[in-house]
Design a protein around this nucleic acid. Sequence first.
DNA 1: GCAAAAGTGTTGGTATTACACCCATGC
DNA 2: GCATGGGTGTAATACCAACACTTTTGC
Lengths: 228, 228
Amino acid sequence: MPANQNIKVAVDAVVFGYTSKEGLSVLLIKRNIDPFKNSWALPGGLVGDDESLEEAVQRELKEETGVNINYLEQLYSFGKPGRDPRNRVISITYYGLVKPDAFELQAATDAADVAWFKIKKLPQLAFDHQEILQAAHERLKSKMLYQPVGFELLEEKFPFSELEKLYMAVLDRPIDRRNFKKKVIKFGFLEETTEKQELSGAGRPGNLFRFNQQKYFQLQKQGINFEL
Amino acid sequence: MPANQNIKVAVDAVVFGYTSKEGLSVLLIKRNIDPFKNSWALPGGLVGDDESLEEAVQRELKEETGVNINYLEQLYSFGKPGRDPRNRVISITYYGLVKPDAFELQAATDAADVAWFKIKKLPQLAFDHQEILQAAHERLKSKMLYQPVGFELLEEKFPFSELEKLYMAVLDRPIDRRNFKKKVIKFGFLEETTEKQELSGAGRPGNLFRFNQQKYFQLQKQGINFEL
DNA sequence: GCAAAAGTGTTGGTATTACACCCATGC
DNA sequence: GCATGGGTGTAATACCAACACTTTTGC
């Protein structure tokens, strides 16, 4: 047992945002200190001595980007020596989902800038953050096949096509509209409202749906089989 | 960013062993230092400054128990303040599978004893190790439903019933023999040999099977749908 | 009337479940 | 011959994949 360990513990967050116009995006900050000064990176930082890991991620996110998020899931811990050129740092990573336009982004002192990047147009990232981001995306893709996803990402009421687009954007492949709807309806985590979509350009307006939160969280716990 | 962080980084391992007589067991060590002196605990310890997390778990396992294991998967990182009464320690946990009788257990200097415990008859564990172990067991259960499991746990050649018993032991529920076999055969990760089981008491001897390693690892990568 | 999006059913194939009897062996 | 475990098939049902036309709206 090494007597004097010299390892730092950090947390990093992969925050996915979704809008139907923009598709899936990720929240990044531009570093204004070396190493990787001026590179884009995942928000994150060192864990305080008296806070839990979850508290640390939430604090860092708030500080660095202005984003408040109440649900983050642990992804993986990265710890290869050399992943940070300064010291040995192991990073415990989390991922979460938000509606991007629910926040006004504000860069903090240790970040020069904050922005959402479309998942398809990412810049070069600092450290091993590219790898982390990719792992988070993979995890999200497989998560949404055994748990309902969308509650955190869609408006309270939304036309059915929004959920469909969300699934297609995250999975990055087409889905049969009719089969998807049958399946979702059968699970019963959606409720149809009597309202119709506001007119948005062309096409027939759809009925609005909302999540049945009780069923949604129940199915999230027990798991579903969402083969698409 | 806290300037002087005072957190230690440890790794802990949940090593599952399986034999058809004993069922599913876990490898534990008896601590001979405080805190929790004389309690049973998961093998593990602090990560060295220049080793990767995987190297650290393997080293600790070797040192504390004599067990060599070449495949461990990361489980989760536990980091609540107070989980270790001495210092703040975050622990990155791993789990793995071995044939228990492939090793001679040897307790090391910082452990008073090492032993396999049946999953159904666990002692009180130190720290939050009970919680870790339970998470590992859950993970293993769900893993075996979307990936083939058994290669690391069974002999090179084995009667079909061994695989069946393994699945029943880990999942802790009965499985229909005929349907299970149909499903496994269809996936094709087993090869039937021409040999018959050595006689072992009563009953008709079964044919021996072995894993088709290529298909096995391929299915492990791509995932299967192993509803039982 | 035409472009855009929403709504909706059927069918054939496949997969899953439930279930029971005979066979080879040791004692 | 009996106890033990191995080996195997079928029928009913549920689920899934594939697929196209009609409706409502704005312009």
